[in-house]
Nucleic acid binder design. Structure first.
Lengths: 187, 187, 187, 187
DNA sequence: AATGAATGAGACTTCATTCAT
DNA sequence: AATGAATGAAGTCTCATTCAT
């Protein structure tokens, strides 16, 4: 039955993400994941060739998912101001709604073994491509892709990682960040 | 009695940093570190209580060192524009001059086990304190500490992590980033 | 799925008992046991949670076995004289027929770590309960359970531990002990 | 200075005895002993050639001490009844007054590695020699040395090992044991 | 004589992976 | 497809002992 299998694989993925986020990549074993997923360690090797392959695949999938989420927030009819808002706020929303995946990706991105597997730029490229027209039309300031990337996403990522207790405070902070970025990037 | 050999301890620290940066925290074993440092695995336990304690101590030391480096770049007579330049350029310089330590800290910061041990804010607080006077005097825009932190350091960190081949290109990028931040933060 | 191999577990138990008896509890390692049992060290941890747990479990099992052996020697129709004979001779027989288990239990009983785990009295209680009726009927002398225990089993244990070369001499000694105890305990 | 050295060696011995009694022979390391004795591990090797030699020497010394204690309780003018009382009560007293040494010896006696080093009979021989005259004179029953040994010391040892909370109860038990043995051994 | 540093060997245990059902 | 058993290799850490002061 296809549904059953899909469920099992899904449970494995979720277990992997949850445990790495909770215990750290260095304290994550196949046995732990299997137990958390409610399957046998051997079962994992039906779906993945090795622990490393599993990590890599799930990491890519999660990263792609987060970019997909972001893309889904954007509408072609948005003006530049709205676009910045959608991107930054979208990224933040993702980190709230999919906290486990967000934290997991964040951790993998900084591990040398996994960072190499996956060029983030490939994904961010499509997002940046949506911004270029605004720069060409003189609505947004022109700057390098690298810095655009850095400014649009690094600060919000930082905010997401350092979230503190009162939820309202976080929203205030996010709004402040967005308007700073609008000031910075809009003409 | 043989006296404690602090050069030996230094070699252990450097080996730890180098290997974690090279192989990732999840592929770093005490035996590997010992071999790289040219000591017996047992020797490591003379200087540290456990692998975890070693990681934590070295991490804290490195983080402190990076903040110390940054502080050393600042002069009281600097104006706001120069201060932003010094901080951002200083952070970048550190990531170049102490690439191993920078990458190591970056990785530890995202590992759940280590992130908790150490509140980065405690250190960044002194840096932010140097900026507040400029905000009070109306020379720099007023914004929350969190966003100041996020804008000043997250993007340059991103740039440092994604350095690409031609060195000149990186400098151009850095200069662009600095002037963007000056535009953003200065009145 | 491969099914649990209880013959393998049996081999582990026997190896544990044999090695502790031969080398002493302080010279018994998991690796040694595994080698003697013909399994991998890791396999031991499928059957036991830790070395300590293994020791404790095997110890309890062996102690229980020795009491079971003793109980099997007793028949309800025995008179008091026969009962004493059966108990003392039974204990001695056990120490001969199951020399390894006997020596192993003897050693564990005196190790602080294991002695606490296991209250010998719980088992000896049933044996003593068989004697009480004879005391009530005035056939055996009345004395405390502790001293009954002490007199019935400690001396024969001592004899078993200090067995010397000619087997006949040991039998003579055992017979003498039994008749001494009969003199002592019977009215 | 001679006093100092003697003290240091004494402290090592006491630490060894205390730790083995507390943690068991299998959990006793040279480092632990050194720490408990307040000396360096290296210092231990000034007084003893190896851990094993240390154990063996201290064990013998303690065993000898316990027999010496017993001998000191006996007076030539005692009659047979008093002699039995003195020996059994003496053994028990030793187990109370020198609980650590008693427990330590008891444990060593059952460890194969140490049991071989030391033939208990050599010491008990002198004690038994004191009893033979009474047997020759028809005041005590004649029996083998082995069983004499077994009856006189094994039960009291058992009582000592299984001491329970109310001290008075133990005394009652001891008195009962002594009078049982007097009944048994006297003509 | 005495010490804490240093270590190779080995302790216990867990690892990622394969096997047999 | 799925499993718990099984394992060689490797993990962290401690051992008894020696070194250098």
């Amino acid at each position: 039955m296809r549904t059953k299998d899909y469920d099992k694989m899904q449970r494995i993925k979720e277990a992997l993400v949850r445990i790495i986020l909770r215990d750290g990549i260095e304290n994550t074993s196949v046995a732990k994941i299997a137990k958390e997923a409610g399957v046998s360690p051997a079962t994992i090797y039906i779906y993945y060739d090795s622990k490393e392959a599993m990590l890599s695949e799930v990491y890519q999938e999660c990263a792609r998912q987060s970019y997909g989420y972001l893309m889904g927030r954007i509408r072609p009819e948005m003006d530049a101001r709205e676009l910045i808002d959608a991107l930054v706020r979208g990224y933040y929303s993702f980190s709230v709604d999919h906290a486990e995946i967000f934290g997991f990706v964040e951790q993998c991105m900084h591990s040398p073994g996994l960072a190499g597997i996956f060029r983030e730029e490939d994904l961010s490229a499509q997002i940046l491509d949506m911004i270029h027209p605004y720069q060409d039309r003189g609505i947004m300031k022109r700057c390098s892709n690298e810095n655009l990337n850095a400014m649009l996403f690094a600060p919000v990522r930082f905010l997401s990682m350092n979230r503190t207790s009162p939820a309202e405070k976080n929203t205030v902070m996010l709004n402040e960040l967005i308007s700073m970025l609008q000031d910075l990037l809009l003409m």
